[in-house]
Design a protein around this nucleic acid. Sequence first.
DNA 1: AAACATTTCGGACTCGAGTCAGCTAATTTT
DNA 2: AAAATTAGCTGACTCGAGTCCGAAATGTTT
Lengths: 295, 295
Amino acid sequence: MFAPSEIDRIRRFHRAVTRETGVMDQSFLGRGRPLGAARVLNAIGRGTNEVAAIRDYLGLDSGLMSRLLRGLEDEGLVATSADPADARRRVVVLTPKGQAEFDAYEAISNDRAGRMIATHPNAEALIAAMDLIASALGRHAVELVETDPRSPEALYCLTEYFAELARRFERGFDVHLSKDPEATSMIAPQGGFFVAMSDGLPIGCGGLKGHWEDATPWGEVKRLWIAPSARGLGLAKRFMTRIEEAARTLGMTTLRLDTNSQLPEAVALYRRLGWTEIDRFNDDPYPDHFFEKHF
Amino acid sequence: MFAPSEIDRIRRFHRAVTRETGVMDQSFLGRGRPLGAARVLNAIGRGTNEVAAIRDYLGLDSGLMSRLLRGLEDEGLVATSADPADARRRVVVLTPKGQAEFDAYEAISNDRAGRMIATHPNAEALIAAMDLIASALGRHAVELVETDPRSPEALYCLTEYFAELARRFERGFDVHLSKDPEATSMIAPQGGFFVAMSDGLPIGCGGLKGHWEDATPWGEVKRLWIAPSARGLGLAKRFMTRIEEAARTLGMTTLRLDTNSQLPEAVALYRRLGWTEIDRFNDDPYPDHFFEKHF
DNA sequence: AAACATTTCGGACTCGAGTCAGCTAATTTT
DNA sequence: AAAATTAGCTGACTCGAGTCCGAAATGTTT
């Protein structure tokens, strides 16, 4: 029986995007500049300003980098100057003309991307598929960064998290009925809040809330969420490790958390990571499972 | 409120696969041959044997093509000879050594693809996402080809079709209870069977069954199915147009079809395409909607 | 048979990407 | 203060990809 193998299908995918990428590169060439120079300009425009960082990001030789930079300088698109902290290093910024050129490249990209979703009837599914693949391919480059729980990235994750709870809990979810931790209790030195960033996209979060008012202070794991497109990459475990580290650093010796049996993967995770189930320790209406860990 | 725009997400996807493709190209270089030559070798190995066809497929200049071919010939990987039908054209075949080299490249590709699915926990979803994207990007290159309903491609589509009916019908679906048309009634000159091919992958099918035994012969549309990853690309309409054409060519003036209200998108399609609902015309247990079209 | 078209071939060329070694200047280590 | 290290710059080089054009062989049309 004929059935296209998974490998055939991956390779078909590969050919499709390779073709697409080729078309994109061609359209970049439309601005009369070689691809290498365009890439450097793009990196600078995106906020990478140290020469070494650009070189590293694009994987270029120092000689080639230098020549590309000289070329952009001759065109009047960038200006370089010595780093005040260490005059061996150089920093590069876009001139107004360079910014205009960068914007033009952005417009090309956005235009292509926009046309793609505009002409596809099920753009949402298409983009979800892209997220899934981008997360899978870029899984080695996911960074957990500590951030303010009121930062845009954190708020984005929290909104998605609450929306998912509302979908998955039989009786829905209203964040106001639940104990919403004060943001300050999830900021050092009280606690911490972490967001997983994958190439600029926030794909998960996790918070540590400090309870310092009690006789023996303890920490509570809150708001652990991984984007559907990034599940299965081991991120939840990374968050838990990171949160434990933060708790230790802040001087806590006990961590607790609550969860719900309608999130079986969460319950399974905590069991697997060696947490022990305990009695209810709060009067929040949503959770029905409670865990604890000492160290 | 921060929310990554769809365009940001598409571009993130783009960066991720570009990186992946780059890595793939690098590993191709491991066999000590420039990428251009490797691409030509690959095209030949995949069964493209006329020089002009290869050039066309890879988009190469005739001079460059000639030189790459000469290089492969010097290495003893390919042999060229004049096309017996037109001695200006040349045909290229792999030598045994060339076949071995081609196999080695295949192994590299398969290995990378295999590793990707092996290390991803949800390979099935990943591949479904890839199919969706590949179909969306390659939608302009979908071909409807007439084929024997017993061909491997057709059987693959039919299997998927029946599996989907079994999932979607409340009481399941058993093909033996339904009137399974004889394959020969869906082969010219009795009828026809069509498969949509997207870069080698069958992504849909549709059959025309001829009823020549009746006083006024008529045609019946059967087995119309589009792969979930390819829905929304307008393929169903293309199939219907193609089937109508085939019916006209075979001398039919009436087409009928049956379908089920548990497939609302199908019912809507037939209405939209100007079919008129009629009374039941068979005793098949599954359908509950019947349509007709004259021309 | 002559004129014209098609297909491949090969040479001369351009261009972009990238490597390498040596250089200068700034900074850190000893 | 001398020596070692680091960051970036420069020139000379290689290599692959690709274009342009004319030659040669074959095929088609008039």
